[in-house]
Protein backbone atom coordinates (compact mmCIF):
# COMPACT_ATOMS: atom_id res chain seq x y z
CA UNK A 1 0.00 0.00 0.00
CA UNK A 2 1.19 3.39 -0.88
CA UNK A 3 2.21 5.53 1.93
CA UNK A 4 1.85 9.24 1.84
CA UNK A 5 4.76 10.83 3.44
CA UNK A 6 4.21 14.29 4.58
CA UNK A 7 7.19 14.86 6.65
CA UNK A 8 9.52 15.19 3.73
CA UNK A 9 10.59 18.80 3.41
CA UNK A 10 10.27 19.96 -0.15
CA UNK A 11 11.92 23.11 -1.34
CA UNK A 12 10.56 25.14 -4.19
CA UNK A 13 13.36 25.47 -6.67
CA UNK A 14 14.52 29.01 -7.25
CA UNK A 15 13.18 30.54 -10.41
CA UNK A 16 15.68 31.66 -12.93
CA UNK A 17 15.29 35.34 -13.75
CA UNK A 18 17.87 35.38 -16.46
CA UNK A 19 15.22 35.66 -19.17
CA UNK A 20 13.57 38.63 -17.51
CA UNK A 21 15.62 41.20 -19.44
CA UNK A 22 14.65 39.51 -22.68
CA UNK A 23 10.98 39.78 -21.85
CA UNK A 24 11.36 43.40 -20.89
CA UNK A 25 13.25 44.07 -24.09
CA UNK A 26 10.42 42.55 -26.02
CA UNK A 27 7.99 44.99 -24.38
CA UNK A 28 10.44 47.77 -24.98
CA UNK A 29 10.68 47.09 -28.68
CA UNK A 30 6.93 46.84 -28.94
CA UNK A 31 6.49 50.26 -27.40
CA UNK A 32 9.30 51.70 -29.46
CA UNK A 33 7.53 50.53 -32.60
CA UNK A 34 4.12 51.93 -31.81
CA UNK A 35 5.30 55.09 -30.16
CA UNK A 36 4.71 58.37 -31.86
CA UNK A 37 6.21 61.34 -30.14
CA UNK A 38 3.68 64.00 -29.50
CA UNK A 39 3.97 66.65 -32.19
CA UNK A 40 3.11 69.51 -29.90
CA UNK A 41 1.74 70.16 -26.47
CA UNK A 42 -1.93 70.79 -26.77
CA UNK A 43 -3.10 74.17 -25.66
CA UNK A 44 -6.63 73.37 -26.67
CA UNK A 45 -8.87 70.59 -25.47
CA UNK A 46 -9.70 68.12 -28.16
CA UNK A 47 -11.98 65.17 -27.78
CA UNK A 48 -11.74 63.53 -31.18
CA UNK A 49 -14.66 62.86 -33.46
CA UNK A 50 -15.65 59.32 -34.34
CA UNK A 51 -16.03 57.87 -37.77
CA UNK A 52 -15.87 54.52 -39.53
CA UNK A 53 -14.49 55.15 -43.00
CA UNK A 54 -10.98 56.03 -41.96
CA UNK A 55 -7.91 56.17 -44.09
CA UNK A 56 -4.43 56.22 -42.67
CA UNK A 57 -2.20 59.22 -43.16
CA UNK A 58 0.69 57.85 -45.14
CA UNK A 59 3.70 60.07 -44.89
CA UNK A 60 4.05 61.82 -41.59
CA UNK A 61 6.61 64.33 -42.74
CA UNK A 62 4.12 65.69 -45.25
CA UNK A 63 1.39 66.28 -42.71
CA UNK A 64 0.79 69.55 -40.91
CA UNK A 65 -1.75 69.84 -38.15
CA UNK A 66 -4.34 72.43 -37.30
CA UNK A 67 -5.87 72.10 -33.87
CA UNK A 68 -9.25 73.57 -33.08
CA UNK A 69 -10.84 73.56 -29.66
CA UNK A 70 -11.41 75.41 -26.44
CA UNK A 71 -8.28 76.50 -24.54
CA UNK A 72 -7.19 74.17 -21.75
CA UNK A 73 -7.72 75.15 -18.14
CA UNK A 74 -4.39 76.92 -17.71
CA UNK A 75 -4.86 79.02 -20.83
CA UNK A 76 -8.44 79.92 -20.18
CA UNK A 77 -7.43 82.93 -18.09
CA UNK A 78 -5.55 84.55 -20.92
CA UNK A 79 -7.48 83.32 -23.91
CA UNK A 80 -11.02 82.83 -22.62
CA UNK A 81 -13.23 79.85 -23.27
CA UNK A 82 -14.10 80.52 -26.88
CA UNK A 83 -12.99 78.05 -29.53
CA UNK A 84 -9.46 78.78 -30.68
CA UNK A 85 -7.06 77.59 -33.31
CA UNK A 86 -3.62 76.27 -32.46
CA UNK A 87 -0.85 76.14 -35.05
CA UNK A 88 2.37 74.51 -34.02
CA UNK A 89 2.93 75.49 -30.43
CA UNK A 90 0.96 78.71 -30.31
CA UNK A 91 -2.55 80.02 -30.51
CA UNK A 92 -3.28 81.61 -33.84
CA UNK A 93 -5.85 83.47 -35.78
CA UNK A 94 -7.52 82.31 -38.97
CA UNK A 95 -5.69 85.15 -40.72
CA UNK A 96 -2.33 83.64 -39.72
CA UNK A 97 -3.20 80.23 -41.09
CA UNK A 98 -2.51 81.10 -44.69
CA UNK A 99 0.97 82.39 -43.89
CA UNK A 100 1.66 79.39 -41.70
CA UNK A 101 0.79 76.97 -44.48
CA UNK A 102 2.84 78.87 -47.04
CA UNK A 103 5.90 78.95 -44.75
CA UNK A 104 5.54 75.29 -43.87
CA UNK A 105 5.20 74.36 -47.48
CA UNK A 106 8.23 76.31 -48.61
CA UNK A 107 10.32 74.49 -46.02
CA UNK A 108 9.50 71.18 -47.69
CA UNK A 109 11.31 69.59 -50.56
CA UNK A 110 10.07 70.87 -53.86
CA UNK A 111 8.75 67.56 -55.10
CA UNK A 112 6.84 67.06 -51.87
CA UNK A 113 5.21 70.44 -51.80
CA UNK A 114 2.04 69.53 -53.58
CA UNK A 115 1.70 66.37 -51.55
CA UNK A 116 1.31 68.29 -48.34
CA UNK A 117 -1.69 67.25 -46.31
CA UNK A 118 -3.28 69.33 -43.62
CA UNK A 119 -4.88 67.36 -40.85
CA UNK A 120 -7.66 69.13 -39.02
CA UNK A 121 -7.92 67.99 -35.44
CA UNK A 122 -10.99 69.59 -34.05
CA UNK A 123 -13.02 69.04 -30.94
CA UNK A 124 -16.29 67.30 -31.59
CA UNK A 125 -18.34 70.17 -30.18
CA UNK A 126 -16.75 72.77 -32.40
CA UNK A 127 -19.16 74.91 -34.36
CA UNK A 128 -18.85 74.47 -38.08
CA UNK A 129 -18.39 78.20 -38.59
CA UNK A 130 -14.83 78.00 -37.29
CA UNK A 131 -14.05 74.88 -39.28
CA UNK A 132 -15.41 76.48 -42.44
CA UNK A 133 -13.24 79.55 -41.89
CA UNK A 134 -10.22 77.29 -41.57
CA UNK A 135 -11.20 75.42 -44.71
CA UNK A 136 -11.59 78.63 -46.67
CA UNK A 137 -8.16 79.78 -45.49
CA UNK A 138 -6.67 76.45 -46.54
CA UNK A 139 -8.25 76.82 -49.94
CA UNK A 140 -6.72 80.25 -50.34
CA UNK A 141 -3.34 78.83 -49.38
CA UNK A 142 -3.80 76.06 -51.95
CA UNK A 143 -3.54 73.38 -49.29
CA UNK A 144 -6.24 71.29 -50.87
CA UNK A 145 -5.42 67.88 -49.47
CA UNK A 146 -7.00 67.78 -46.08
CA UNK A 147 -7.83 65.15 -43.54
CA UNK A 148 -10.39 65.31 -40.79
CA UNK A 149 -8.66 63.51 -37.97
CA UNK A 150 -10.97 60.99 -36.31
CA UNK A 151 -10.91 57.82 -34.28
CA UNK A 152 -12.60 54.55 -35.06
CA UNK A 153 -16.17 54.39 -33.89
CA UNK A 154 -16.46 51.59 -31.38
CA UNK A 155 -20.06 50.78 -30.57
CA UNK A 156 -22.51 50.64 -33.41
Amino acid sequence: MAKIRKDQQRETPEMSTSSLPDIIFMFLFFFMMITTMKEVTYKVQISPVQATELTKLENKSLVRYVYIGKPTQEWQKTFGTETRIQLGDAFADVAQLEDYIVTERSSMKEEDQNLMTVSIKADKDTRMGVVTDVKQALRRAYALRINYSAVQKTNR
Binding site: K56, L57, S119, R145, Y148, Q152
Partner: peptide
Protein backbone atom coordinates in the same frame (compact mmCIF):
# COMPACT_ATOMS: atom_id res chain seq x y z
CA UNK B 1 5.27 57.57 -20.75
CA UNK B 2 6.12 59.28 -24.02
CA UNK B 3 3.94 57.05 -26.09
CA UNK B 4 0.71 58.55 -27.18
CA UNK B 5 -1.38 56.23 -29.21
CA UNK B 6 -2.14 59.15 -31.40
CA UNK B 7 -4.49 58.35 -34.18
CA UNK B 8 -3.08 59.42 -37.48
CA UNK B 9 -6.24 58.31 -39.15
CA UNK B 10 -9.04 60.35 -40.53
CA UNK B 11 -11.37 61.14 -43.36
CA UNK B 12 -9.39 62.29 -46.36
CA UNK B 13 -11.02 64.93 -48.49
CA UNK B 14 -9.97 67.27 -51.24
CA UNK B 15 -10.94 70.91 -51.22
CA UNK B 16 -11.84 72.68 -54.44
CA UNK B 17 -9.33 75.19 -55.73
CA UNK B 18 -10.01 78.77 -54.71
Amino acid sequence: VTTSMDSNKGLSRRLPAP
